[in-house]
Design a protein around this nucleic acid. Structure first.
Length: 159
DNA sequence: GCCAACGTTGGC
DNA sequence: GCCAACGTTGGC
């Protein structure tokens, strides 16, 4: 089996809930709480070593702040079964979990944030999903787009 | 399977 | 805090 090419993604998180600084101090963390089918499909498609743009949403300004990588393939998100969790889903049963998550690990922080506004104004990023209307919290990124955002942030592409 | 109503996301 | 745009739900 040929090894598939590394894939790239963007994952949104509200920094008040979980920021890149939180990921940096934890090292590795489960990406729990995703409750949208399209986002779930994207997580299920992730492979070990895939790279993720960590994006801060619902803040001023929103934008990409660093890089994470996938270190555990999609598995059931335990918060869906926890009645005390804000992510509890009464319709999901343990023998048929509805929601999944991956684990990601911290890779780097950009020297400067790449704001949504900057991405919107960059011609190379005109087709990027994040600049389009929509609210997909886990979305694919093209390799060229990923490299461009890293460059705009003054960061380094992991080898 | 359609689609209106509903709830949520997320930029502003 | 507002609200447009979106995704999901559920009646039919």
């Amino acid at each position: 089996m040929p090894k598939l090419a590394r894939q790239y993604w963007l994952m949104k998180s509200e920094p008040d809930a979980f920021s890149i600084a939180d990921l940096e101090s934890k090292g590795t963390a489960p990406w729990d709480g995703v409750r949208a089918y399209a986002a779930r499909s994207n997580m299920v498609a992730m492979q070990l070593g895939d790279l993720v743009l960590f994006y801060h949403s619902s803040c001023v300004p929103p934008g990409a702040v660093g890089i994470a990588s996938v270190v555990k393939l999609a598995y059931p998100d335990p918060t869906q079964f926890d009645p005390k969790s804000q992510y509890f889903d009464a319709k999901s049963k343990p023998d048929a979990p509805r929601w999944r998550m991956v684990d990601v690990t911290f890779v780097s922080r950009f020297p400067r944030m790449v704001t949504l506004e900057v991405m919107r104004q960059d011609p190379e990023l005109a087709e990027m999903v994040v600049v389009k209307p929509g609210r997909l919290s886990v979305q694919p990124v093209k390799p060229g787009e990923f490299a461009r955002v890293v460059k705009l942030g003054g960061g380094k592409l992991p080898r």
